[in-house]
Design a protein around this nucleic acid. Structure first.
Length: 686
DNA sequence: GGCATGTGTATTTTT
DNA sequence: TACACATGCC
């Protein structure tokens, strides 16, 4: 008997969901019901009797995994569905390594550091090795981290990576090599893993460790979403995880590969049948998301791609409304028009959260955010700068990380620099003293501290007290007999203690202290949901709040808000109305990406991804004039070109509207053919 | 050695 | 606009 939920699938989807044990490659175009299909496959596996905790579901974000598991659970009604191992490669690596760390020579309390932490360490090495001394333009920390990560994830030599992707750093290659060598050494010594390490250790765990068999046989089935955006190491991991077993299913779309900067390679999809012999290939080509006009325009964009993609998506959702290409005078006009359109759709009954504004880079929405705030239109922004990257949040977390891993020099450095009167030199000296002895640097700090510079004496004492309070160790003066057993201090209490320690400093150092204090309060709230500090830190690093909204507690959940998102963060999502702003050359494609053909091709796919997020309405905005605010001259500006991807062939599929300026510099009128004016006016009364 | 101040410059996308 | 680096004062 066939389960009810399978009836709702089309033939290709059902074939994918009910496929047997062999390797399975699903090529799923945008909006073809990929999530549904995967959820059904999970449900099907469960009903076939596969235990939930023997299913591994790898997705691009933890949110995507949670969504699929939730849907599978709805389909089967089985509570045990929650036991499915779901998450990102990095999160799963972390989870496995917490169990099997001895097999790869890791200590249990290793901490995971994010990109910014890695950058801080690179910076410390940059000065301590002195390699940057001779050259004033030695690559910055961010660049160093990018180069490093690229070498590791693509498994390419430093010299090749620099030559191909960072040619302007070629003359510093020796210094970079020195820093990298020390970077890896320090990380090991300090018990730190960066994002790349998580994958590398997972790979080692399943290819070359005493636990390899145990890890492999933990899972009966592995499912991977967004396979086009995996890199070589991730591919190796999958091959090793499935060595001698066939049950692996991957889903991907080569037309949506947008992560080559993270060394993702389309080869993984193309070579899947070779890597996993006997693989069945199923294509999903019917789009259930977008209406025909939107799909035609999107297909037209991809039709110009250098590589021909295998599929044209089709849809039977008709609509008389073509996507709109809006020519606006400048960025101000763009903001106003976006707001107008958003409100118009809202008044027609489409909630704000069913609408999204998409853009190439995080800062592209800066002006719009101001305008939205001015008009009291609530919004949540995904992508771009994150809460977790703010200096004051990092400062506070550094304190917890010291408690978790006392050997974490980078965090010690951060914490010490917060104190008034301690600069890089003194911080360095103090850290050297702390780590010189046999005992843990934390114990040394509490029982036999180095002397701080006189100016920092008070702050230093406060720091020690704080660490003391959080660590739960008895202090020097405590009478051993009377001292109660060290109480476990809750994570939230630790954050609270850290907050009390930091807040006076903040009010001195930062101007908008109020906001920052609020951030820390929110951090404390998040901490309240955790029993384990280790878990708290790992989760924040591996699955950071993607927008400030994630920090908001239930009262806000009912509120309606507009979605602002980078195109990268919009992957996998869909909205009734999508507004794509800054469709100008230099924005899409980004100036940074046009130096080589592959870069341009990826930018094209990026526009395609953005367009195919739309279900019913799609607006693409093109501001004609850009101002150069940094220029000496008052109103210096330049005229932009329409994105090179919106060719004449593509424009045929759009309705074009032009907003002109009137004397008051307000955008108020329409230019173009009479027909367009009529269309526009009709829109207004509709 | 720390810190305030001034100058120049590079500036995407994310786990 | 933010960040790295240089300079000069305490």
């Amino acid at each position: 008997m066939r389960a009810k939920y399978l009836e709702t699938l089309n033939d290709a989807q059902r074939a994918a969901a009910t496929h047997g044990d062999g390797p399975l490659l699903i090529i799923a175009g945008a909006g073809t019901g990929k999530t549904t299909t995967l959820a059904c496959r999970v449900a099907h596996l469960l009903e076939r009797g596969v235990p939930a905790d023997r299913i591994l579901l790898l997705t691009f974000t933890r949110r995507a995994a949670a969504e699929m598991i939730r849907r599978a659970s709805d389909l089967t009604g089985q509570a045990q569905t929650a036991k499915v191992w779901g998450g990102t490669f990095h999160a799963v690596a972390n989870r496995l390594l917490r169990i099997y760390h001895p097999a790869v020579g890791l200590a249990a309390e290793f901490t995971v550091c994010d990109q910014a932490d890695a950058g801080d360490m690179m910076n410390m090495l940059r000065s301590s090795t002195g390699v940057a001394k001779e050259n004033r333009r030695f690559p910055r920390k961010g660049t160093l981290v990018s180069i490093y990560s690229r070498c590791v994830s693509a498994e390419e030599k430093l010299s090749d990576v620099v030559a191909r992707h960072f040619p302007w750093c070629a003359e510093d290659i020796e210094g970079i090599g020195t820093i990298f060598a020390q970077y890896t050494q320090r990380k090991r010594a300090l018990n730190l893993l960066d994002y790349d390490d998580l994958l590398l250790y997972w790979r080692q765990l399943v290819t070359d460790s005493p636990a390899a068999d145990a890890v492999r046989s933990r899972f009966d089935c592995v499912l991977v979403d967004e396979y086009q955006d995996t890199n070589r190491v991730q591919c190796d991991i999958l091959r090793a995880m499935r060595a001698g077993r066939g049950d692996i299913g991957v889903v991907g779309d080569d037309a949506q590969a947008i992560y080559s900067f993270r060394a993702a390679t389309v080869r993984n999809i193309l070579d899947f049948p070779t890597h996993f012999p006997g693989a069945a290939i199923i294509k999903l080509e019917q789009n259930y998301r977008s209406n025909q006009p939107i799909l035609r325009a999107s297909n037209a964009v991809m039709a110009q791609a250098k590589e021909r993609y295998t599929k044209d998506l089709w849809s039977d959702r008709t609509s008389a409304q073509q996507p709109v290409l809006a020519h606006v005078w400048d960025e101000d006009a763009q903001c106003k028009l976006v707001c107008d359109q958003v409100v118009k759709h809202l008044e027609e009954g489409i909630a704000l959260r069913r609408q999204a504004v998409l853009f190439r880079a995080g800062h592209h929405s800066d002006l719009l955010e101001v305008e939205l705030a001015r008009r009291n239109i609530p919004f949540h922004k995904y992508g771009g700068l994150k809460f977790i990257e703010a200096a004051h949040v990092k400062d506070l977390l550094a304190l917890l990380r010291i408690l978790e891993n006392p050997y974490d020099e980078v965090s010690w450095h951060r914490v010490l620099l917060v104190l008034e009167g301690i600069g890089p030199k003194n911080a360095q000296r103090i850290i050297e003293t702390l780590t010189s002895g046999e005992e843990s640097p934390l114990a040394r700090m509490l029982h036999d501290p180095p002397s701080p510079p006189p100016a920092a004496r008070e702050g230093f004492a406060a720091l020690r007290e704080m660490l003391q309070a959080c660590s739960g160790l008895p202090n020097d003066n405590a009478d051993e007999d009377d001292a109660p057993a060290p109480a476990r201090v809750s994570v939230a209490a630790q954050v609270a203690a850290a907050r009390r320690f930091y807040e006076p400093v903040f009010t001195k150092v930062y101007d908008n202290a109020g906001m920052r204090v609020r951030d820390l309060e929110q951090l404390e709230q998040i901490a309240a949901g955790y029993r384990s500090r280790r878990r708290f830190l790992a989760d924040l690093t591996l699955d950071p709040p993607t927008s400030t909204s994630d920090l908001a507690q239930p009262p806000y959940l009912e509120d309606d808000y507009l979605i602002l998102s980078t195109i990268h963060s919009a992957k996998g999502c869909e909205w009734d109305v999508v507004h794509i702003i800054h469709a100008a050359d230099g924005m899409i494609p980004s100036d940074m990406a046009v130096s080589d053909d592959d870069g341009v091709e990826e930018e094209r796919r990026l526009l395609y991804v953005a367009m195919t997020r739309a279900k019913d309405w799609l607006y693409v905005y093109f501001p004609l004039r850009y101002y150069h605010r940094k220029s000496r001259f008052g109103d210096a500006h330049s005229y932009a070109q329409l994105s090179r991807f919106i060719t004449d062939d593509v424009r045929k599929h759009f309705e074009e509207r032009t907003m002109a300026m009137d004397e008051d510099s307000e955008c108020s009128d329409i230019q173009g053919s009479g027909k367009r004016v009529d269309n526009f006016l009709r829109e207004l009364w509709k």
